[in-house]
Design a binder for these strands. Structure first.
Lengths: 194, 194
DNA sequence: ACCTGAACACCGTTCAAGT
DNA sequence: ACCTGAACACCGTTCAAGT
């Protein structure tokens, strides 16, 4: 009677995806280095030995988790900005979106803090490369020459990454709301071509 | 006969400074996370047990090593730029110096990659805070208003940190010499007031 | 004053055995 | 197909004992 064809009261058996999502949750909460097999197993209610049925190593788990994130983040960029046709307006909208959405930056910030890890680096390289290309194309469409657009894209993306880094470094004197808005305006005025 | 008052043929006994310098060397060579008590002890030719006579923990060793670096790096900034009186010329010189000196960025880059570590964060906060203040003062002296100077300093330092980050992330398509020079020119033209 | 050597805890990894 | 439990290696930490 405990066994029906309907999948109802199975014991909590886990899939590789469950482990990957658990790792991603841990990254968002406590950073990349908090992803450890034994604590994660405890959290999921199994013993650490069972982990090795799903993944060959901790590195492989991290890789799966980060690639899961990479896919999600790529879908986000697709949907949100393609609607705006005017290139300079699209850039302004991009700056505002980046400035005011918090959640998408959490995992990215955690990865910034853990760039030491060999699994993190290539994922970041791919994501940042794509974003740089998108920025370069946008500056071109806004009327800049090829070289100028490339350099401006690099400077702009460096400003973005650097701002996140500074926020991580100087946790005390974080900008207050009005100062932050003024800073975003300053950045837009300085970096978006007239 | 083996014991003279002259300090000649002692066995290689170590001081706390020796351990701190060894840790700093390891950071420059292999990153913050490579600082481990047992490997460092092997490298220094002693057993790991002896480490705990000098430091209470691995964290304390890291702290000592990073504060050693912080002091050195502060002396560097002092000496190199105070001679130039024209503020805009001093800014240009600062950009060029930062762009062309390699060594001082090595430890800084390793710390960027390990910002996850609680010992790294406050050191980075102090160093970056000082540099931000210096930049703000320079932009003020170059004629900008208080708020503008602060924001421009933040943007400029973010561009610096972000450029280092990008170099760490995209290790493949590093800029070639001429491209890099052109990029530095672009950054100076965009960020230094006319 | 500085070091050794043995001990313990914690986590990554392996694997035979269970369901 | 997924999990347990015991084992081993590696590193952080402690400490009694050596010089």
């Amino acid at each position: 009677m405990t066994e029906t064809t309907a999948k109802a009261e199975r014991p909590p058996r886990l899939s590789a995806d469950d482990w990957a999502q658990g790792a991603l949750d841990l990254i968002a909460e406590q950073g990349v280095n908090a992803v450890a097999v034994e604590p994660l197993a405890r959290r999921l209610g199994v013993t650490k030995g069972s982990f090795y049925w799903h993944f060959p190593s901790r590195e492989a788990l991290l890789k799966a988790a980060l690639e899961r994130w990479e896919q999600m983040e790529q879908e986000l960029v697709f949907g949100s900005l393609e609607a705006i046709s005017d290139p300079r307006e699209r850039l302004r909208q991009l700056f505002r979106l980046v400035a005011h959405e918090v959640k998408p930056h959490i995992i990215y910030s955690e990865m910034l803090k853990a760039l030491d890890h060999p699994v993190v680096q290539p994922v970041m390289g791919r994501v940042s490369g794509r974003r740089l290309d998108y920025l370069t194309a946008s500056f071109r469409q806004a009327g800049m020459g090829r070289t100028d657009a490339q350099q401006r894209a690099r400077l702009t993306y460096a400003a973005y990454v650097g701002f996140l880094q500074l926020s991580l470094q100087l946790q005390q004197p974080r900008l207050h709301h009005d100062e932050f808005e003024a800073y975003v305006d300053h950045v837009m005025a300085t970096l978006i071509p007239a």
